[in-house]
Design a protein around this nucleic acid. Sequence first.
DNA 1: TGTACATCAGTGAACGCGCGTTCACTGATGTAC
DNA 2: TGTACATCAGTGAACGCGCGTTCACTGATGTAC
Lengths: 203, 203
Amino acid sequence: MTPARERNRKGAGDRLRPEILSAAASLVAEGGADALSLRAIARRAGVTAPAIYAHFKDIDAVRNAVVAETFSELADWLARGAQDRTDPVDRLRATCRAYVDYGFRNPRQYAILFSTPFELPDLESPKSLATMQGGNAFAILLDAIKACVDAGRSRSTRIEDDAAAVWLALHGYVSLTAALPDFPWPPTDTLLDNMIDRLAQLS
Amino acid sequence: MTPARERNRKGAGDRLRPEILSAAASLVAEGGADALSLRAIARRAGVTAPAIYAHFKDIDAVRNAVVAETFSELADWLARGAQDRTDPVDRLRATCRAYVDYGFRNPRQYAILFSTPFELPDLESPKSLATMQGGNAFAILLDAIKACVDAGRSRSTRIEDDAAAVWLALHGYVSLTAALPDFPWPPTDTLLDNMIDRLAQLS
DNA sequence: TGTACATCAGTGAACGCGCGTTCACTGATGTAC
DNA sequence: TGTACATCAGTGAACGCGCGTTCACTGATGTAC
């Protein structure tokens, strides 16, 4: 029945944890948030359901871990998408395009990032960007805009505000086009570049 | 057990349908999309579950009807929010603020609008704006921008594109701030007005 | 080098739950005669 | 005006399902002596 999986050796119980997470990730990729049940994860990981409780408190803990992993996957994707750009405007545009690209290629993973209001963080309101969900991804965007300003290519005077505006627009684009695919959207490139130019105040 | 509800008279079976929809709407308002089960709707409507099948093919048909109703509620809200503005720029801004306002006041209703890729429409690809989900709301936005252009207050040359950009930004704003409430977002008014000014190319 | 044992990584059965959907039915009520 | 009856608006029981979580357990394996 269950696909053969050999039990971890004695000290190696921790090895199941990443297997659980990658099983969960593949379920999300195929079926979206609704496919993410504890039992389905266990089945895919080749393990019985109670085994998961050794690694996560409950199903919400698994979901949160999946979301956190997906956020950092997104951040990696953004960084990699812009890594070889030296011109700051190029880099900003490449970052934004990578963002949209990630959303298009992984619509279900992208959707879980913003599907729920999140639990309060473990620490008592650190509110620092780095520890926030999505903070890493935002930081990359912020840096890219900062570089444009430093190079005199953007007129932005409130960089954080404008970076937030760009993020909102990117998210809106990914999210709305996914939800209403039949809507007569303008072609991606012009729409996107125009939005970036204006919101980041490129010149 | 079930709250007293008297059975409709013989010709009046159709009266249950709106009761089902408003029961469903109130469930969404309180518990979001996940609270929308056929049995929960039946309970709230004071009716047994099978009674719903006289009015809807299955649970998805109910969901779709709720989404459609919510979209037109949003369109009404936008129209009402801007009805007394005569200056076109004022009208556009009021429309946008009404959009965001709707999302803030009714986060769960707003969320179901864009939570799922929708079923294909009944007719064979009419693709006209009016028949699309969200088409009414978009048309209101489009008109508001058009009026700005006609009055020489917007430099937009591709009105549809820019209207789409504004919509994407508004949606991004509502959706992201709802999903990441702890993020240090800039204050609503400045952020929103700046985005509108730039995307709609107001002068 | 051999063995007893504690520990560890899971298993398997069971619980109660809410779900969507089907089916045969009931009882009130409008209508035809 | 009275009555038989067909229709209509639901009901109530049942189905099979997957879910999250608990509990007592098992069997392999590293470790202490």
